[in-house]
Design a protein around this nucleic acid. Structure first.
Lengths: 226, 226
DNA sequence: CAGTGGTCTAGACCACTCG
DNA sequence: GAGTGGTCTAGACCACTGG
């Protein structure tokens, strides 16, 4: 009887409605005795179920079955090259633009960059088997780059950052947007086409590193297994 | 020195590039000695970092810093009512259609339903402060419903399922799609508008329960904190 | 203040897998 | 075969928080 068995049995009782949504379940010590395992083993199992949103735990208050379970889905976000290669296709990219420029106010604001400070703008087209796969536009604080800058025409910005900059946190957002003229041209789709967009902001402990928008070619789906 | 401190210190060394991407790090016992904690405490910290994709661990092989860290983002997918109420708005919904019908072949196929078997089709419009929020279309195997069926005009299908059916697993997909005539009409947007679509398939241990498409009103964003 | 979960420890054995 | 992570145990103390 390992912790995964304990988890399975608890899960079974929830599913069988032995323990109803919103109801308390026995405390760790009671379950440990019933299953004949140490309390730490029960703790491990219940902690896991709580992390996945099926249980709610509070000291002193005890453990209850979540009334309205929040589904938690984990997305894996690999570098684009891996994503393309995982589909059995060949990845390539073209650096379309690279220059210092003033970031738009909303971007500077979200990243906490002083307005009026020029940052590095990079525009890249990713290809899968030679066909447009994603249109990437990125603002990057050059303070995180060595002098001279890496040659982003030969190594993708993202891969350089991932292997050379210690990034800490960030947030990711997904949205559907109508293709603007530039993305439409680059991806070879009609203006206004519905495109899947990923936006990522990345910070180190102290300061913002980069803001990137990935505009995916039509048909892109993001899938998760629960 | 708790396990979170150990995790923080290991993270610091990765960020400081003391330990380079792809490189091995000391084993648990060595770290336990260095930090003056039990091996189980180090294990907890390293396991956590491995789950978030920063470390790769294998028995006998040891622990190494991930060469190309896979970002893992966790999405919380609450019931729509909670989502709307979290924005400080009032949730309401209207059941637009409810009937037995033959599901489209791709749907039946994905759910493992015999072709030619009629299932329950439900169409719902969700409102936030009275304005269209999401257009929901759903196929549901009535075998999971009591007789007579719940009154889905007064309790939303999703909430009924979540509190009454023990669902096990499922997958979730996100995509951008152009508004079809029906969704455009119901949501009050032009045909062809770019809309964010969520598709969920839900299974019990034995059989498929439901397939649901949520077509969100324009401007919808799905956000995650890493 | 008292009950519950959260964590730590020291030691042990097991499971996997590299060499 | 041997080294590493994975897990379990029994006991202890701590931290939070409900009554």
């Amino acid at each position: 009887m390992g912790w995964e068995d304990v988890r399975a049995e608890v899960l079974r009782r929830i599913r069988a409605r032995d323990w109803l949504p919103g109801a308390m379940i026995p405390n760790e010590e009671a379950l440990a005795q019933e299953f004949g395992v140490a309390r730490a083993t029960v703790n491990r199992a219940l902690r896991d179920l709580a992390e996945s949103g099926l249980l709610e735990r509070r000291r002193k208050a005890g453990t209850r079955v979540a009334a309205l379970p929040v589904r938690r889905a984990t997305l894996e976000i690999p570098v684009i090259r891996q994503e393309v290669e995982a589909r059995g296709q060949v990845h390539a990219f073209r650096l379309l633009d690279e220059r210092m420029a003033l970031p738009p106010v909303p971007v500077a604001g979200q990243l906490g960059w002083a307005s009026g400070a020029a940052k590095l703008y990079l525009e890249t087209l990713h290809l899968a088997d030679g066909k447009p796969y994603a249109h990437e536009t990125r603002w990057l604080d050059p303070v995180h780059l060595p002098d001279p800058r890496p040659d982003f025409a030969s190594i993708s910005v993202n891969e350089w950052l991932v292997t050379h900059v210690a990034f800490a946190t960030g947030d990711i957002a997904f949205a559907a947007e109508a293709a603007d003229p530039r993305s439409a041209e680059v991806l070879g789709v009609p203006q206004g086409a519905a495109l899947f967009v990923t936006e990522r902001t990345t910070f180190t402990a102290e300061s913002a590193i980069t803001f990137v928008r990935l505009i995916h070619a039509p048909g892109y789906r993001m899938v998760t297994m629960v």
